[in-house]
Amino acid sequence: MIRHVILRVMAKMLIPLILLFALYVQFHGDYGPGGGFQAGVIFGAGIILFALIFGLEPAKAAFPPRVLEVLVAVGLMIYGGTGIAAIVKGGNFLGYGALSHDPVHGQHLGILLVELGVGITVASVMSTIFFHFGGRGRKDV
């Protein structure tokens, strides 16, 4: 853990806000700037900031690498699954219009799900890559 008080206190105050802002960007992407990719990167940056300030081990305890590795695939599967669901419902692959009775609602739902998948994948990819980089050259990991 870093001993600088200012850094630690500021990080403690900022990290929840960063994670909350990531969720805002994720679910507000339909209406304002942003979307899954940006939200994922911001969420990953929050995790990385946590790891930088409080150390790699507490970060791995809070965000277990095993879970993150699974989430990397889960996000992509949500995206692909949305496409498959559209086929099952009688439309084309990734043709969200078929997801609901009203095509516009279906589009909205599809975009929301797809962005969620992108966000999950990007956030877990960013933190996984950082954990792998940060854990190199140390004996304790």
Partner: peptide
């Protein structure tokens, strides 16, 4: 009319260019 999403960038990225 197609998607009901006001942010055109999101609509293009996620739907038209899915």
């Amino acid at each position: 009319d197609d998607t009901g999403v006001p942010n055109m960038v999101t609509a293009i990225l996620a739907s038209y260019r899915g």
